[in-house]
Simulated assay, not measured.
Amino acid sequence: MNASVRRRGAALAIAATSATLLFSSGAAVAQVATGDTSSAKIALSNNYAANAWRQSMLKTWASTADDAVKRKLVAAAPAFTTSENQPTEQAQQIQNMILQGYKAIVVDAASPTALNGTIKKACAAGVVVVSYDGVVTEPCAYRVTFDFRKMGEKQIDYLAERLNGKGNILEIRGLAGVSVDGEIHAGIMDGIKKHPGLKIVGSVNGDWAQTVAQKAVSGILPTLPKVDGVVTQGGDGFGVAQAFKAANRELPIIILGNREDELQWWKTQVQSGYKTYSASNPPGAVTVAFWVAQQVLAGKKVPKEIDIVAPLLYLNEQQLPDALAKTPQGGVADIAFSQQDTVKLLDATPAKGK
Rank of each mutant, 00 (worst) to 15 (best):
S24T: 14
D334I: 12
I308P: 05
A110E: 09
T268P: 09
T268R: 05
E305A: 14
G234C: 05
G331D: 02
A285F: 02
Q210N: 15
G126E: 09
V343A: 11
Q329D: 14
A110T: 14
S63T: 13
S338P: 12
Q319Y: 02
A310S: 14
L313G: 00
E171W: 04
E305L: 11
A76G: 09
S38C: 10
L198D: 06
A16M: 10
I94S: 08
S338F: 01
V144R: 01
E250P: 05
G9Q: 14
L251K: 11
A246Q: 12
A33T: 09
A141K: 00
D236A: 10
A243S: 12
L73N: 02
V180M: 02
D181F: 01
G206P: 00
I94R: 00
T349E: 06
V212P: 02
Q92I: 13
G229S: 10
S56A: 14
K275T: 15
I335T: 11
Q329E: 14
V127S: 05
K326M: 06
P252K: 05
L346E: 08
E84I: 05
A76I: 10
L224Q: 00
N258G: 08
S83G: 13
S18Q: 14
G152F: 00
G229H: 05
N258L: 11
L297F: 08
T60N: 10
A75L: 13
W291D: 13
I192Y: 05
T60Q: 11
E89K: 08
Q155I: 02
S218R: 03
V240F: 04
R259S: 15
A30F: 07
A351R: 13
S272W: 05
A141M: 03
I335P: 01
Q86F: 07
A52L: 06
L115P: 01
N2Y: 07
M151W: 12
I188Q: 12
I254K: 08
Q319R: 07
Q271P: 05
M189G: 09
L320G: 05
V107S: 06
A293S: 13
G182E: 11
P225C: 03
V227Y: 04
A79C: 09
K41E: 05
L346A: 07
L315H: 01
R173P: 00
D228E: 11
D67W: 09
A109D: 04
V29K: 13
Q100T: 07
F146S: 01
A40W: 01
V106R: 01
A325T: 12
G237T: 09
Y314Q: 07
N116C: 03
N205G: 12
D347V: 10
F23P: 04
T34K: 14
V230G: 00
Q269L: 14
K150E: 15
G174I: 02
T88R: 13
A325E: 09
F244N: 03
V230Y: 04
I172W: 03
